[in-house]
């Protein structure tokens, strides 16, 4: 668990400190177009507009992590809420919530996100909301199943006898019990969201005023023959970040159930 976690913290730190590590607008061009890595002070080379790849990568991490973490957090919030209500209440509420969840799970996430953003116009906030709206059902399902099972548990009865109101029981007694599996899903959600955001960027739907890894790959497409580095480094950045979040999810899962796998 340690190495991926450490790497993630490093990544997060880089993203937060990006404006101080490499100040200035990473999207401002220069005359040094298509320089290969390690040439004249550009460690990772420059793109077709003479922009420094390293600066764009570093600033691009802010968009990826922002979208990944924020959308996962939103999905977590909605998912836990919906799942808790459905699992605790049961009956028609449960049926309704699960039907809605099923519908959202059926939707093809990437294509829908593409089209919504294409219609609504680019913007980081919109991307976060769209991804969250498409991601909450899985969390809701897990929470609902776990809560449904816990509802009959002895400690819940005890809390009820002690006069604790239902919402407090869920909050204080039940939710901590299911934090593990929900955390696993959240980590995997971050990975999926980062991939999705990169895909949007690759389709040219990223925010044109912000550097993003997906958009960099979009640009690289036309210069594959001339500048391999324009594709190599943003792709590596996406792959590595996604890998780290997946590993984090696996590690938490393994920690919860050491027998598994």
């Amino acid at each position: 668990m340690r190495p991926p976690l450490l790497a993630l913290l490093m990544l997060l730190l880089c993203a937060i400190l990006a404006p101080w590590i490499i100040p200035g607008d990473p999207l401002a061009g220069s005359a040094d177009a298509l320089l290969a890595p390690l040439q004249s002070g550009h460690t990772l080379g420059t793109d077709d507009l003479g922009r420094d790849m390293l600066a764009m990568l570093l600033h691009g991490s802010r968009v990826s992590l922002m979208v990944g973490l924020a959308s996962s957090a939103c999905a977590l919030l909605v998912g836990v809420l919906a799942g808790a209500v459905a699992g605790w209440h049961g009956g028609w509420v449960d049926a309704l919530v699960m039907r809605i969840a099923e519908f959202f799970q059926t939707l093809p996430r990437f294509v829908l996100a593409l089209i919504v953003i294409a219609l609504a116009g680019p913007g980081i906030g919109k991307v976060i909301i769209v991804i969250a709206v498409l991601a909450w059902p899985q969390t809701a399902r897990v929470v609902r199943a776990e809560i449904g099972a816990l509802r009959q548990a002895a400690f819940v009865d005890a809390a009820r006898l002690a006069g604790m109101p239902d919402w407090l029981i869920v909050l204080r007694e039940v939710l901590p019990q299911i934090a593990g599996p929900v955390l696993v899903l959240a980590a995997l959600d971050v990975a999926t969201a980062i991939l999705l955001e990169a895909g949007l960027g690759f389709f040219g739907l990223g925010d044109p005023n912000l550097a993003s890894w997906g958009a960099m790959l979009n640009q690289a497409q036309q210069y594959l023959r001339a500048a391999w580095w324009m594709s190599m480094f943003p792709g590596l950045a996406i792959g590595l970040t996604v890998l780290l979040f997946n590993l984090l999810g696996d590690a938490v899962a393994q920690h919860l159930d050491p027998r598994g796998r």
């Binding site: 690759f202 497409q221 594959l224 190599m232 996406i238 890998l243 997946n246």
Partner: peptide, 18 residues
């Protein structure tokens, strides 16, 4: 499998072209 699953298809495509 873990490594491959983290790779965006479009980047892998570009790498294959390269």
């Amino acid at each position: 499998a873990t490594l491959s699953y983290a790779m965006p298809e479009f980047w892998l495509g570009q790498l294959l072209i390269l």
